[in-house]
Simulated assay, not measured.
Amino acid sequence: MARWKPGTAERLQAAALELFATRGYERTTATEIAQSVGLTERTFFRHFSDKREVLFHGQHPLAQAFLDGVRAAPPDASALDTVARALRSGASYFPAERRPQARMRQAVIDENPALQERELRKMADLGATLADTLRARGVADLAATVAARTAVAVFGIAFTRWVGDGEQRSFEDIVAEVYRELLTLAGGAAQL
């Protein structure tokens, strides 16, 4: 018999999100999260370093999805074409069935300044990783930094729209719309 049942981390995440949404992040403890799914606090801490990490556990797969998009770009692709592929690949990480959970998670984050800060840090880390990967492909430092940070901004705007009340479009469609708007703005920009 297995010592831990498969899916324990996912069960803890679902329980935590529900408790955070109903009781509030600050008023929910790791012990309460664990007990709500019949586990111990010790089991909780085998999976997560603290209750905040329950909300940010998926950042490595998301970064991997972005990097997979970069790796799929042809070697001669421009920095913007490469990050467009990264955005498309990252968008695939958010199928329609994840939207209700993403909306609930975002509502919890929006109510807590410390979680908002952690979310910003996550996005900054994603931008840094993306820029490093672009540099490794031979993209110049400034171009890699601008392209990566632009991609993160496009992603963030698209995500906010995707989790918005009443939004039904796919994440891929929203990312494409925001990216097209970026290109339109850049094409009509005046020189400094």
Rank of each mutant, 00 (worst) to 15 (best):
M1H: 11
R3L: 14
G7R: 08
G7D: 09
A9M: 05
L12D: 05
L12I: 03
Q13R: 14
A16G: 12
T22K: 07
T22G: 02
R23C: 11
G24H: 06
G24C: 09
Y25V: 02
Y25S: 09
Y25Q: 08
R27H: 11
R27E: 14
R27N: 12
T28S: 02
A30L: 02
T31M: 06
T31A: 11
E32Q: 13
E32G: 05
I33T: 09
V37W: 00
L39F: 03
R42F: 11
F45Y: 15
F45A: 08
R46F: 11
R46H: 13
H47T: 07
F48C: 06
S49Y: 06
D50F: 04
K51Q: 07
L55H: 03
L55E: 00
F56A: 06
F56R: 03
G58V: 00
Q59L: 11
H60I: 12
Q64S: 14
F66A: 06
D68G: 11
D68V: 07
V70L: 05
R71I: 08
P74I: 02
P75E: 01
A77S: 13
S78V: 05
S78C: 04
L80S: 08
D81K: 08
A84M: 05
G90I: 04
A91Q: 04
S92W: 10
Y93L: 01
F94E: 01
E97Q: 06
R99D: 04
Q101W: 13
A102V: 02
R103T: 05
M104C: 10
M104L: 13
M104W: 00
R105S: 10
A107S: 12
A107P: 08
V108N: 07
D110H: 10
E111R: 15
E111D: 14
N112F: 07
N112D: 11
A114F: 05
L115K: 10
L115A: 02
L115G: 09
R118S: 14
E119Q: 15
L120F: 08
K122M: 15
L126I: 10
G127C: 03
L130N: 04
A131L: 01
A131F: 01
D132M: 02
D132I: 00
D132R: 10
L134W: 07
L134Q: 01
L134A: 00
R135T: 11
A136Y: 03
A140P: 04
L142V: 15
A144I: 02
A144G: 09
T145L: 10
A147S: 09
A147E: 00
A147T: 03
R149M: 10
T150Q: 00
T150G: 13
V154E: 08
V154F: 00
V154R: 09
F155P: 06
F155Q: 08
F155Y: 15
F155V: 07
G156I: 04
A158Q: 04
F159P: 03
T160P: 04
W162Y: 12
V163A: 05
G164N: 06
D165T: 10
D165N: 08
G166P: 04
E167N: 07
R169N: 00
S170H: 08
S170L: 02
F171Y: 10
E172T: 12
I174Y: 08
V175N: 00
E177D: 11
Y179Q: 13
E181K: 15
L183K: 12
L183H: 11
T184V: 14
A186Q: 08
A190M: 11
